[in-house]
Each structure stands twice: as C-alpha cells, then as structure tokens.
Simulated scan of single mutants.
Amino acid sequence: MRVEMRLVDWNPGYFLPTVAGGLLAAGGAAAFGWVRLSELMFGFGFICWVVLGSILLLRLFTQPALPNRLLPVIAIELAPPVVAGNVWFAMNGGRADFVARVLAGYALLMASVQLSMIPSYRTAPFGPAFWVFAFTYVAAVTDVIFWLKAEDADYSKAITYVLLALSTLGYAALATRTVKGMIRGTFLPEYPAAR
C-alpha cells in the first residue's frame, strides 16, 4: 500500500509472511489452549488469504507468466487451504465439520492445479524456489493425516506411514539436488553486478 507496485511483480510468495504467519500463529495459540487468540489469528490469516489471494489469482490469470526460475512458487497456492485446514482441526478438536470440508474442497481444487503444473515445473531450472514444495506439500500431507484421523479411515496408520515416507523422500530429493546444484554452481541464480 505504501509503494507503487505493478501487478506483474506479484507472486504467491507474498502468502508466506501474511497468510502463513497468521495461520501458524493461530495453530500455535490453539496448541496452548488460547482460544480467543487462535480465533483472532485465524481471522488475520484468513482475511490476508482472501485479499492477497484475489490479487495473486488476478496476476496469475491476466499477466505474463512468472519467470521460469519462479514458476515453482505457484506451489504456494496450495498452502493456504491446507495450512488453514490443519489449524482448523487444531482449533475444533479434530472434527471434520463444515469449515473443514470447505477448506478441503478448495485444497482439492488447488491440488488439481498442482497436477496440471507438473509440465511447467519441469521446465524451471532447479534453484531456491523449489524449496516451496517442502512447506506446501508437507502441510498438505499433514492435512490428509488429520482427515484420516477425523474420518477414522480404514488403514489410516498404513497410509500415514506411506505419506510420511514419501515426504521424507521428497525432502531427501530436494536436499540432494540442492547439494549437487551448489557443488556445480547452478543452484543460486546469477545476477549482474551492481554498478
């Protein structure tokens, strides 16, 4: 609000300090039993999601594509509904109520977007932006685990172990590619020297 910014300069990374900050604070407050603070911070994160989400979706739909090296930050679009889902489960005692179902519905929509983005992600050079998958996808896995528990699903323990193993393999793959990229000098993008 205080600086002039073009719509094309926006990217989903703006969710992290605002939406994620508010929702994670709500989850922490809920863990300590601070009900009013968790509700307040959930509202803060949710409103940031609505406001910034509108701007970011407008940017993604109407402006030129993000630069190739930034394409992976589109994965952050999945984070708000799954983080909100995790926090909501912490706030409501793990029940799959109306709000949990609404958040899950939007999470499914954003997960389908992620599937459609796989070809685009494969064109992006591997760099720091790929680490957004770590937070986003583990938050999604956590949300699925909460749902398994809330629905008392058959084989929930086995599914949980598989999801945790896949998450661990995902982190290992990210770490391995990062180390290889750092050794080769390709992980961090090069910028022209300032004059």
Rank of each mutant, 00 (worst) to 15 (best):
I76G: 01
F187R: 10
A175W: 14
A111W: 13
I47S: 08
T18M: 11
L164W: 10
A134R: 10
I118S: 01
I47K: 11
R6Q: 12
V8E: 15
S167L: 02
L166F: 10
F44H: 13
D152F: 06
L58E: 08
A79C: 09
V73P: 00
E190V: 15
V132D: 05
R36C: 03
L60E: 11
L52N: 14
L169H: 05
K180D: 15
Y191E: 10
D154Q: 04
R184M: 11
F46Q: 03
L164V: 15
V51H: 10
L7T: 10
F98R: 08
A100N: 03
L37W: 06
L66C: 06
P192W: 09
E4Y: 02
V138P: 04
Y191Q: 13
R6W: 01
G28T: 11
W88S: 03
Y121C: 04
V3A: 13
A104C: 09
V50Q: 12
A173E: 05
G21V: 00
R95I: 10
F98W: 13
L16T: 03
M1N: 14
D97H: 09
A111P: 03
M41V: 00
R195P: 14
L16G: 04
V3S: 10
Y191M: 15
A134D: 10
F135M: 10
G28R: 14
L166E: 08
L58Y: 07
I118H: 08
G28N: 12
N11P: 00
P125E: 00
A25Q: 02
F32G: 14
L169Q: 05
W147Y: 12
L71K: 14
L60A: 14
G13R: 04
V162D: 11
